[in-house]
Write a protein that binds this DNA or RNA. Sequence first.
DNA 1: CCCTCGCTAGTCAAAGTTGACTACCCGATC
DNA 2: GATCGGGTAGTCAACTTTGACTAGCGAGGG
Lengths: 213, 213
Amino acid sequence: MSAIRLLVLGAVRQHGRAHGYQVRNDLEYWGAHEWSHAKPGSIYHALKQMAKQGLLHAHEIAPSTAGGPPRTEYEITEAGTEEFLRLLREALTSYDQKMDVKSSAIGFMVELPRAEVVTLLKERIRRIEQWRASVTEHYVPEEGPEQLGHIGEIMNLWIHTADAELAWIQGLIGRIEDGAYSFAGEGEPFVGILAEGEENPYATGERHPEDAG
Amino acid sequence: MSAIRLLVLGAVRQHGRAHGYQVRNDLEYWGAHEWSHAKPGSIYHALKQMAKQGLLHAHEIAPSTAGGPPRTEYEITEAGTEEFLRLLREALTSYDQKMDVKSSAIGFMVELPRAEVVTLLKERIRRIEQWRASVTEHYVPEEGPEQLGHIGEIMNLWIHTADAELAWIQGLIGRIEDGAYSFAGEGEPFVGILAEGEENPYATGERHPEDAG
DNA sequence: CCCTCGCTAGTCAAAGTTGACTACCCGATC
DNA sequence: GATCGGGTAGTCAACTTTGACTAGCGAGGG
């Protein structure tokens, strides 16, 4: 699963109606150009593709209000909303180590009810533990990484990574259960979009990994 | 950076001369079909592409010795070896969270001299710390994740991930400095390929992440 | 009044990835 | 002696990603 569809659907959804450049700007506002691989080409491609698949509805070209060429505006459809929620749930539960997917999932988690997020995260824990168990069938952490030659270091890395993620999720679940943040159906929704004309305070962020060469 | 080129170059290099199916089998032997996204299509594509770019030399079709259609055999060139080492060094130093790149890097690290690997890993540490510092400009871990709303959880995840990787690398460097494993120029090289006719004990492994749906 | 700079909004070709499909041959089975 | 399954070896079309490029417009300087 790539994070692009989730990000683009989420951006269009929060706007109600958006053109490509707006989506691009939201992702930049979220810092997503730094931790996801959301380049312009991918964004426009995703918009067109999802319009073709009925997840978005394309309103044909409106003249730009701010200089520049005319633009196509998109609105999310019923099917698109379902797909968004499906992708979001999948991103929250599946043990996918891709940072962009994880970050997007956390960013959008408040679009689901609190109880469901906890359930999904617990399912994620179950899957991580299952994967961890399948690794330790070959590799016994207690005996140290040397047991299989340097290849053991790979499994050591996996176990380390899995354990770190488990610890992190436990913390997150704890905070959510203790009432942190505002989830779907709990009053004021969180809105992470830029109003028309508002300036983006994060537009010129510093370098982040995944683009480090 | 995708792991495919590194994996394919490394496989061809260890064989001396290999056809696509052999590479495919090596990757399966290494379990790479489970933690990397190395599908047949990608492997054959990479072979052709790298042959076109002069990284591999393609010996035109030899009739198969074991049933099946004729096959193209590849040998690594001077340029290919350089590219392999370049990719390997990059995979070891750059803070790229992709599991397949990291795992490949560890798998091949013994192709470099021990001292160089330590140097590269220390550079990796430097970069991770730098990235960590750039995150903590916005986010103070000591104040807990709630300070920025649920968006703080994303940064909390990043810090957690970075710290876990730092701890893991420190351990790895320690073991390498203490003389573990056999690196380039230290006698018997590690060979991770299947001899002609040898059976693959890992051919039917269990499910691993990245393919978990 | 013209020209260039910078922002707006997007296109496009080339490369990479995916999953399904093909073709060949051997040995066993009916 | 047909044919059927399974391993060998690879192709292909569809889709996605990437990076470089284009084109319109307004503001401001000279």
